[in-house]
């Protein structure tokens, strides 16, 4: 049973805060990044940082939808914590000389589309959708990618930062699965109806169209870094395993949808899924710049590698 006491969780979250200033970003070890690693790691870190940032925005939307004040507060903290992770990852990039001056690295086109979608529609999505997608993103992209990173990078400062980040993420997941189960408690029939109604929402279809290729793009980036994609899949299966531990969790139709989708993602033989999605990824690359969303939402600019301001 993944049921947790949310009040205790909130207290734990409050007492586990850390700041960029707690880490010495100039400590020795930056030279442990090899010349061969450097360009791939730069692209990877940029994506990772953006995913954290996008996850942060997801939590901001969830805070607005939270059914009670404790959960609302928890999500407000998680929003800030994801931002902190993005800040810390940017600080690592700065340490490794991967930033062009103080400029934020450009997000890839799939991420740009996801950012655009989050900015426009995430506040209108029901908690059920976000509450299911966010744990999946956390596990598959955030959690899994962090683990890979630690396997390949020897810089102790990186390990120090990710020890803290992973610690935060374990709480995010705990709450994520708790909420998944909470939502499975309602009447199944009503849930199913609501799910169908939501799926028919064109705003959500747009969201799916941004999320689905993002997963495949990240898989490609992972492979490009020389990591085994099997590890990514193992993490994605974790979502199905933990989320489906209890009957309540399994009753949540969004859990069913997301985990089934996860199964399709990890099954490379499923050409009916991967052929069109991979095509979508390639097509995104061909979207001319002028058709990409030109307006960057203000929240995107909130990231900083500087411990003090």
């Amino acid at each position: 049973m993944a049921n947790i006491d949310l009040d205790k969780m909130l207290a734990k979250v409050k007492s586990s805060q850390w700041a960029l200033a707690d880490i010495d970003w100039d400590a020795p070890g930056a030279d442990l990044i090899t010349a061969e690693q450097w360009p791939k790691l730069k692209a990877f870190m940029a994506d990772l940082m953006w995913i954290e940032h996008v996850g942060a925005r997801g939590f901001a939307a969830m805070a607005k939808k939270a059914p009670d004040d404790t959960l609302k507060q928890i999500y407000t903290y998680f929003h800030a914590e994801e931002q902190r992770h993005a800040n810390a990852e940017m600080a690592l990039m700065k340490r490794w000389g991967m930033l062009d001056g103080d400029e934020l690295p450009e997000p890839n086109k799939n991420l740009k589309l996801v950012i655009q979608w989050l900015d426009k529609y995430s506040d209108d999505m029901p908690l059920e959708v976000l509450g299911s997608v966010i744990p999946m993103l956390e596990i598959a992209l955030d959690g899994a990618l962090c683990t890979f990173l630690l396997d390949t990078v020897d810089d102790p400062v990186c390990h120090q930062a990710f020890a803290r980040i992973n610690d935060d993420e374990s709480r995010h997941l705990g709450v994520g699965f708790h909420v998944l189960e909470m939502q499975g408690r309602g009447d199944l029939y009503i849930k199913a109806l609501k799910t169908v109604a939501t799926v028919l929402d064109p705003r959500l279809i747009l969201g799916i169209a941004s999320y689905v290729p993002l997963l495949n793009r990240m898989r490609d980036n992972v492979v490009a870094m020389g990591l085994s994609e099997e590890k990514l899949y193992a993490c994605m299966k974790k979502f199905e395993r933990i989320g489906g531990r209890t009957a309540q969790g399994r009753r949540n139709p969004w859990y069913q949808i997301i985990s089934r989708h996860g199964r399709m993602v990890v099954n490379r033989d499923n050409r009916t899924y991967h052929a069109p999605v991979d095509l979508m990824v390639r097509l995104t690359d061909y979207i001319p710049e002028r058709l990409m969303p030109s307006r960057v939402p203000t929240w995107v600019k909130g990231i900083s590698y500087r411990p003090t301001a």
């Binding site: 700041a19 960029l20 800030a80 914590e81 800040n87 411990p307 003090t308 301001a309």
Partner: peptide, 8 residues
């Protein structure tokens, strides 16, 4: 210090 890790 805010929870996004920055000290103002």
């Amino acid at each position: 210090r805010t929870c996004d890790g920055i000290e103002h």
